[in-house]
Design a protein around this nucleic acid. Structure first.
Ligand code: SF4
Ligand code: SF4
Lengths: 135, 135
DNA sequence: TTTATATACGACTAAATCAGTCTTATTTAT
DNA sequence: ATAAATAAGACTGATTTAGTCGTATATAAA
């Protein structure tokens, strides 16, 4: 319960790696996978998610790779989470996938409002932490 | 990811119910299960966990049930979570079950320290919210 | 003393989620 | 052309979660 997914942890590692790269060449999925002993395919997916969310710019082909679009102090952990995770909410009824919220308790539920406030505060924790702070 | 378990939600509901009970008789698992349409066995387990954590006192037998040991403003959501959940940590390496931490990245992991801080802040969110606040 | 009502507790199963792999296509520097 | 890299989706196995079942024990009241 409350655990971050491995995907999110890999996303933090990858973002951190990109932020520290000042070698001139673009960082690649392969490089990150080897450096942190992460399955290549998973890092690749994470970086593709970053591209879609415009956290990075990708360059295809040989000598290709990824570079950050913004400075690390202008990227928050919630940006990274939102890039790779569809659902990061504390309850089912706050998740976006369930087209029409599927929780059978929704009508008689008395704890939903307080939990919405909890959700707001937890998101705030990630919002207030920048990539720069975890370098 | 980051979702609370149903067990924890049921625990919040049950604790809330106990806090609102001023009917003279002790609240029972059956009563709570019916009131909130929760599976009886699950509420029963939650209440047994409460007893072990000394959040409530239990009374066995006919006319038995449960009563809160402390006033609702003296019980925090983290007390309730700790009563019913073994693992409520954001990473594997912070969980207590894994006898000797099982994460293969532990040695080369650069994000662990920042995540320990995140964990502290999230626990703080639940610590700072009392049962009274969710009535 | 029997019955009904309640807590206590552990084993088991089914469903859902997560982590990781496999495969194929496309792009681009050399 | 070739090698190196991103892009993307399908698939599988492992783990976690939610819920059920069965049995034992305690106690109020008929
Ligand atoms: S409606 Fe209530 S029980 Fe259902 S997911 Fe939302 S908070 Fe939880
Ligand atoms: S050691 Fe690092 S990768 Fe492993 S669980 Fe802890 S934070 Fe996550």
């Amino acid at each position: 319960m409350l655990k971050l997914s491995k995907k999110t942890e890999y996303a933090f590692m990858a973002a951190r790696h990109l932020a520290l790269n000042n070698s001139g060449h673009y960082s690649t999925a392969k490089e990150i996978a080897e450096n942190y002993r992460i399955p290549y395919q998973l890092v690749a997916k994470v970086l593709q998610n970053f591209t879609k969310s415009e956290i990075v710019t990708s360059f295809q082909g040989a000598k290709g790779g990824y570079k950050l679009n913004r400075s690390p102090d202008n990227i928050s952990l919630i940006d990274i989470i939102k890039a790779v995770e569809h659902n990061y909410q504390v309850t089912e009824c706050m998740q976006q996938n369930n087209s029409r919220s599927t929780c059978s308790h929704l009508d008689c539920c008395k704890i939903r409002d307080p939990l919405i406030e909890i959700q707001r505060k937890i998101e705030n924790v990630f919002e207030q932490t920048s990539l720069k702070q975890i370098l």
